[in-house]
Nucleic acid binder design. Structure first.
Lengths: 147, 147
DNA sequence: ATAATAAAAGTCAACAATAGTCAAAGCGGA
DNA sequence: TCCGCTTTGACTATTGTTGACTTTTATTAT
C-alpha cells in the first residue's frame, strides 16, 4: 500500500530540488488537498522528516496568507553538528561566504549578519586565525542559546 | 490568495526606501483606495509591522488634513540620548545596562543582545575602555545600517 | 465666536483563512 | 500478537480582513 508520508517527503524533496537556493515555500492545506490527505499529515512529515538533524529548517506562518518554508541547510551541519569536521580556520572569504549562506537560509537576520561581519573584522587585528575560528563557533552557539 | 497585509508592508517599505531621511508621510484613506482595501487594514499593518520592536515610530493626525508619518528609528539614538553617552567609556555594568535597556525597549532582539554581550566580552581582552566605547558605537551604527 | 459639517484617522468585534497540537485509531512487519 | 510508525480529525492558535462606529481636526455657515 502507498505510504503517504514517504510520498509527501518525496514531493517536497522534488520541489526543493527544483529550486535554485535550497528554499521552497508551500501551503499546507493546498498540498494536503493535492495529495488527498489530512493537512495535519503534512505537519507530521515536516516534523519527522525535515528536521534540523537531517539538515532542514522549517518556518511557517499561520493565518490568512499562511505558508510553510522549508530550507535545506548543509552549512548548519558543518557549523553546528560537526565541530570535528570543520576546518581549524577560515579565510576572510570563507567567513563571508558562510555568513551569506546563513543569512540566505534565514538562520540569521541581516542585522545579525552585519554584526558578525563587523565583529570578525574587529578581532582580526587581535587574534590569530585559529583563535578567530574558535570565537566564531562560540558566537554561533551564543546565538543559538538566545533563540 | 493575495495577501494584502504583506503588500501594504512592501508598499510602505518601498516608499520609505525612496526617502532620504527615513521618514515618509502618507494618507490612510488614499493608500487604502490605491490598494483597494479597507482603511482599517492600513492601521492593522502599521500596528503589527511598523512597531518599535522593528525600529519604527508611527505618528498620525486625524481630521481634515490628517496624515500618517512613519519614521525608521536609528537604534543608536537611544544610546546617544542618554547622559552616559557623553562619557568616553563605560564600565562593563554600564554596557550591560545599555544592552538590557535596548532590548527592553525592543530596539534589539535577545539574540542581538547576546551577540553584543559576547562581542564586548571578547574584545575586553584586547582593547582599552575608550577603544571599546568607540567600537560599541560603530557596532550600533552597523546594526542600524542593516535594518 | 459658535455651531454645524466635512474630512480625516482610530478602535473593536466578528469572521475568514491559515497552520499547529495531540490523542486515538489504523496498519504492517518482526 | 505486539510495537512502532502512520493517519486522521477535532480542537487550538495565529494572522488577516472588513465594516460599523468613534474621535479628532479643519472648514464653513450663521
Amino acid at each position: 500500500m502507498r505510504n503517504l508520508a514517504d510520498e509527501i517527503e518525496r514531493f517536497i524533496l522534488r520541489k526543493l530540488a527544483g529550486e535554485t537556493n535550497d528554499i521552497t515555500i508551500l501551503q499546507r492545506n493546498e498540498l494536503a488537498d493535492e495529495l488527498s490527505c489530512a493537512p495535519s499529515q503534512i505537519s507530521y512529515v515536516l516534523s519527522t522528516r525535515f528536521t534540523a538533524e537531517r539538515g532542514f529548517i522549517v518556518q511557517s506562518r499561520r493565518g490568512s496568507g499562511g505558508f510553510v518554508r522549508i530550507v535545506r541547510v548543509p552549512v548548519q551541519k558543518i557549523v553546528y553538528n560537526k565541530p570535528d569536521n570543520i576546518m581549524d580556520y577560515c579565510s576572510p572569504e570563507d567567513f563571508e561566504n558562510i555568513i551569506i549562506k546563513l543569512n540566505s537560509e534565514r538562520m540569521i537576520t541581516a542585522r545579525e549578519a552585519g554584526l558578525i561581519k563587523y565583529f570578525l573584522d574587529v578581532i582580526d587585528d587581535y587574534v590569530n586565525p585559529v583563535e578567530k575560528m574558535r570565537i566564531f563557533r562560540s558566537l554561533l552557539i551564543t546565538l543559538e542559546n538566545n533563540s
